[in-house]
Design a protein around this nucleic acid. Structure first.
Lengths: 140, 140
DNA sequence: ATAGATGCAAAGAGTTTGCATAGGT
DNA sequence: ACCTATGCAAACTCTTTGCATCTAT
């Protein structure tokens, strides 16, 4: 990762502006605003480089393809809305997982994902856009 | 799912005998002991049928392809040992996830995976038979 | 000018589907 | 005998790789 190309800037910029984990396809779509001819292979290659470089981190939710978000966000977990499919960051937990695991198991990390309905989709927050536009819409 | 075929019995039997979540490929290999000509497509088709029928459940660990285990095991979570890649069942938790999520978010399910080292691999416990066998290597 | 980065297309890996036929009922 | 379920192979989707060209340094 030695050159600062238009494509790389577009990809990293998209991740930084999104405020939520993005899939390679979403990244491709979003980054094309700044780099129209951007190829999907370039997105994948840059994801790998940015991961190695520590700029971004992979977000693995159970049963879902990997998404990517800024690395500097610190430890946190995710909430996936079943209606709009958007993934939201939620705070780290304070649970003592060492105690939760059976005796003899040494816990060095944990992954937690909550599933449910986000405020927007449960009608508790002002709905400006239809709930079912899926992965594509922004949640500010 | 109306007929009790040799292939289906082999697939379901493999899941029941395994005592751990199996991938489609593992299932294919194991079920071939009873049904030698078994095709991979049949494994996938039966996985779907058995899921619909409620006989098996899908186990999704972050960053891993889906595995399948018996459905009657009840709600629990998983511990993945980084040394031997074993996946162990661990008890359900009592955490109040509704309180953990931000206001307005309705939580209907949660997934938890712990990562670390199992007793066997950390050499702390004289485990003659682990709670569950592993993924990569056979324990018997 | 150099060599890393890109775009395209083809190749892989995993999963699904179409179709003729075997086999459970 | 009927019709679901199967085996094979092709199709599909997602991701990676090869190669000629472009471009940041």
């Amino acid at each position: 990762m030695e050159r600062n190309t238009r494509q790389r800037a577009a990809i990293l910029g998209a991740i930084q502006r999104a405020g939520r984990p993005l899939s390679p396809a979403e990244l491709h779509t979003l980054a094309r605003d700044e780099a129209p001819a951007l190829g999907l292979a370039t997105v994948y290659r840059n994801i790998k480089m940015l991961l190695l470089d520590g700029c971004i981190r992979e977000v693995d939710l159970p049963g879902e393809a990997p998404r990517y978000e800024e690395a500097h966000l610190g430890h946190h977990h995710h909430f996936k809305c079943r209606v709009c499919d958007c993934v939201f960051d939620i705070a780290d937990c304070k649970t003592d997982w060492h105690a939760f695991a059976p005796p003899g198991f040494v816990v060095d990390a944990h992954e937690i994902t909550l599933f449910g309905t986000c405020p927007k989709c449960s009608g508790q927050a002002p709905l400006s856009s239809p709930p079912h536009s899926a992965d594509g819409h922004s949640h500010g």
